[in-house]
Amino acid sequence: MPSVIQTAGLRKTYQLAEPVHALRKVDITIEQGEFVAIMGASGSGKSTLMNIIGCLDRPTEGSYQLDGTEVSGLDRNQRADIRNQKIGFVFQGFNLLARTSALANVELPLVYQRTRRFKNSAKRAAECLERVGLKDRMDHHPSQLSGGQQQRVAIARALVNQPALILADEPTGNLDTKTSLDIMGLFQELNAEGVTILIVTHEPEISHYTKRCIEMRDGLVVADKQIENRRDAREDLANFTSVTSL
């Protein structure tokens, strides 16, 4: 089975007044079933890497194989199709369509599918909402949902096309501690079911719930280690709730 992500000599240079080297030489390999956190100071190149891995952007140089396919040279439309079939995004700001039901939001990627993988897209979207525990909120609009619930809808949307990879850029950045734990618990569950997840975070606590942590500085990978003493978000949430309810 091919690696989900395999990059070699990935570079990204922004040509401004003087060139900005956002990524300088990134080689990473991520296998199916991994749960990886990318950490690093602001400006270290995390988002740039995420955008390239998510096929929203192209590297200036280097190769990137997603699920065994070289994608660094694809054009706009091909990248759109790759995103549609292989990638699920979760954003810090949820990025749900306003005044649109949770179900329609989750269905959105299937609206653009060209392969007809999922014939009954509404049924598939409903399954995913059920999976994230929002079976009874399908008709609610984002404004009628809490932040945690909105992020669950976003996660359901990321799951709907059975992607090879879920990419989450600061998924807990807008959430309080309790809700963050809840969302990390959901990610852990999904990962246990075999979903490959890559999250960007600057909070070290969050990385403790993942399996592997990649640290970046100035466009370079400076550390890449497995997490020892991995924490269980559901347990921490239970403890957290009992402490606060005292």
């Binding site: 759109a80 990025n95 369509l97």
Partner: peptide, 12 residues
């Protein structure tokens, strides 16, 4: 909204 649609696979 356009960004979201494009990110989930909408073509231009």
């Amino acid at each position: 909204e356009i960004g979201v649609r494009v990110s989930v696979g909408a073509r231009g």
